[in-house]
């Protein structure tokens, strides 16, 4: 009797998340999948088949764009990690109390404005008549205006800036949980800065590194605004391509197929990343 009521309670507790999953995640995906396996024959006339998926692999432009997006996202993830780790280490280990809170808040301040505003901010800085260009000219380092916008480096800057918080937060959490005495013990036993970093700090922070990398990779891969606004003439991004298929080409069938391919291929990349780093998802998500 009592176990029955507790089970009912459990179901009631789970009901909102279950509903949320069903209504907002599962049902739309089922719908999208059905659209993705429809092949257009003529107006209001569709067949069922996998031609849309085949199109991805047969048209080099599509899979090349995906590969490009993936490589750039991986690069953005690595850069974010390289930049975020020292910041996180500084916040977690070298500051205390108020300074720590302040620094943490400073990392978050950019996220109080919308992504669009942040990206426009970068455009103001990087454009030919922008702040950096004028500053360089004022300092006499360059003779004419320099264009720093509309290239892959600008995309990279934007992606790293947009996602750094999502790397710093899990890293600070895991590094916070690293007992200072472990680091001291490392020094006491004759360790150097590098060997302590390599043998003690990084292995301990691994779950945070991996979860941060997964989040940043997924955010970069799924980013839409940054590559469009900061990118150059060749800067195709896979999400932009999906948008184009849905909105400007009215080709929902191909767009849906692309959506599923993005889901599957990005999961595959994350899976490979976990395998390579020797981590498991449950380990990563459970600990951080």
């Amino acid at each position: 009797m009592s176990s029955d009521t507790s089970r009912l309670g459990l179901y009631l507790l789970l009901a909102p998340i279950f509903l949320w999953l069903t209504v907002l995640i599962i049902l739309p995906h089922v719908g999208l999948f059905i659209v993705s396996i429809s092949e257009k024959v003529g107006p209001r006339d569709y067949d069922t088949g996998f031609a849309n998926y085949a199109a991805f692999f047969t048209e080099p432009l599509y899979w090349r764009t995906f590969a490009r997006t993936t490589i750039m996202s991986v690069l953005a993830t690595v850069l974010t990690l390289i930049l975020g780790f020292p910041i996180a280490y500084y916040i977690a280990k070298l500051t205390k109390g108020r300074a720590k809170t302040t620094l943490f808040l400073m990392c978050m301040i950019p996220f109080w404005v919308s992504e669009l505003v942040r990206t426009f901010g970068w455009m103001i800085l990087l454009r030919e008549t922008g702040v950096f260009s004028n500053l360089l000219q004022y300092l006499g380092l360059v003779t004419g205006p320099v264009e720093m916008l509309y290239n892959d480096a600008a995309i990279m800057v934007g992606l790293v800036y947009t996602s750094i918080l999502f790397m710093v937060v899990p890293l600070v959490t895991t590094l916070d949980s690293l007992d200072d005495s472990l680091i001291e013990a490392g020094y006491d036993l004759g360790g150097t800065n590098t060997s302590i970093m390599r043998e003690i700090v990084i292995p301990h922070a691994m779950p945070g590194i991996v979860s941060g990398c997964i989040v940043v990779f997924m955010l970069s891969l799924g980013n839409y605004l940054t590559p469009i606004l900061l990118g150059g003439k060749d800067s195709l991004w896979f999400t932009g391509m999906i948008y184009t298929q849905f909105i400007t080409r009215f080709n929902w069938e191909l767009g849906s197929a692309f959506g599923f391919l993005l889901l599957a291929l990005s999961s595959l990349v994350v899976f490979l990343g976990l395998k390579v780093s020797g981590q498991s998802l449950s380990n990563t998500m459970g600990r951080s």
């Binding site: 107006p43 432009l61 391509m241 400007t248 080409r249």
Partner: peptide, 17 residues
């Protein structure tokens, strides 16, 4: 109907070139 798909591929190729 269907013209947009042709134009779309052309635009994609220009973009990627």
């Amino acid at each position: 109907a269907g013209l947009e798909a042709m134009e779309g591929s052309t635009l994609d190729r220009i973009n990627a070139a």
